[in-house]
Nucleic acid binder design. Structure first.
Lengths: 190, 190
DNA sequence: CTGAATTTTCAGAAATTTCTGAAATTACGG
DNA sequence: CCGTAATTTCAGAAATTTCTGAAAATTCAG
């Protein structure tokens, strides 16, 4: 590996984390390298930088393209393929969320729905289905929230993040006002 | 494997997904089995159900305990260890979020902070640091949001989820009112 | 077209992870 | 304490994943 020390540390870390993130070491390293690179890199520059085989780089780039984390970029007058990691960090976040949902959540949601359609054949299965229903319900709440929130433009998304739990304070205030109104009118419980 | 068909399908699916979720097949299967089981199970019942070795079950249960996804439960008059998957689905969500953050995010955050402390030794490193700063900033925004939201009780959390992007509509409304006020007073831009 | 540059494919090697069975350790009723 | 039931450990087997080098395929300038 032939990189400036700071960049090398970052690349090695991404490589080590790769397996926890559902990608492999090489793929993590290639992404890290492209992420901190100011200009597009071609495969041979990646081979050079990381000290891995050309074919491995080819496969890694293909996987990163499948994840939409890296895009092909041509340089005029050069036959080689160059690659960049898109630089808008919020867009990267969206891409990661989308791809991880696709790989880690959607298949389970579809299995849960399928299993919930079946007629239970025993008391055990009936109980299991009730548990699957709880899981399905939660995942649906989460994915509905996600589908809604992902449509926000970045500014609003950032606002929503910085707001955090404060949102519910507004709601609490509203609830108090509503319940106060009821109390005065004398309907419903305290 | 010796399980009712519906439960077997669920267990096999969790096993297959395991690798995408950062656990292995057996661990996924053990969890799935406990999740749909109405009473605690002991190791031998899991061996029986899944058709894997006793030692593998032992290691799988240990990993699930490390994840706080499974807890040890004793049955009076029985020397064996029994296990359950806690049944509150919202608590499971919290546990998963916490453990995944610990494994998948915190180490990177700590590496980023460390690398950002270093004095860049070249223009390349200077640029790389600027990119690491962007990444660090985003992760901090996300983890701050998470640290805030995770303290909410379940009811409020569910409310916040069902609200989704509507939150920002309230804010937009507020902004419009504020800017209207400014307009009337004649300070600031439209 | 031709042929050199470039990329991709893929069989098998290398590395890593998972799993097992046997042995060691621990826990506990009597 | 003793003896047995239960659990854990761990070396190495099995399975899986990752990586490489050689060959095939593709691309494109001339």
């Amino acid at each position: 590996m032939n990189l400036p020390p700071l960049i090398q540390s970052f690349v090695l870390h991404f490589g080590e984390m790769g397996s926890r993130w559902g990608i492999n070491r090489t793929v993590g390293q290639i992404y890290a390298l492209l992420y901190v690179s100011p200009e597009p890199l071609c495969a041979d520059q990646i081979v050079e930088g990381l000290g891995i085989s050309r074919s491995n780089v080819s496969m890694g780039l293909r996987e990163l393209q499948a994840w939409n984390l890296v895009i092909l970029r041509h340089i005029p007058g050069d036959r080689r393929d160059f690659f960049i990691a898109p630089d808008d960090i919020w867009q990267i976040l969206r891409t990661l969320a989308e791809e991880r949902k696709k790989r880690e959540v959607d298949p389970t949601l579809s299995v849960l729905r399928e299993l919930l359609m079946q007629q239970p054949g025993s008391e055990e299965e009936r109980y299991a289905q009730s548990r699957l229903m709880e899981m399905n319900g939660l995942i649906e709440q989460l994915t509905n929230w996600y589908d809604d929130v992902k449509r926000l433009d970045t500014e609003r998304l950032a606002t929503l993040l910085s707001l955090g739990s404060k949102v519910t304070r507004l709601l609490d205030a509203k609830d108090r006002i509503v319940s106060l109104g009821r109390k005065r009118r004398g309907d419903g419980q305290p």
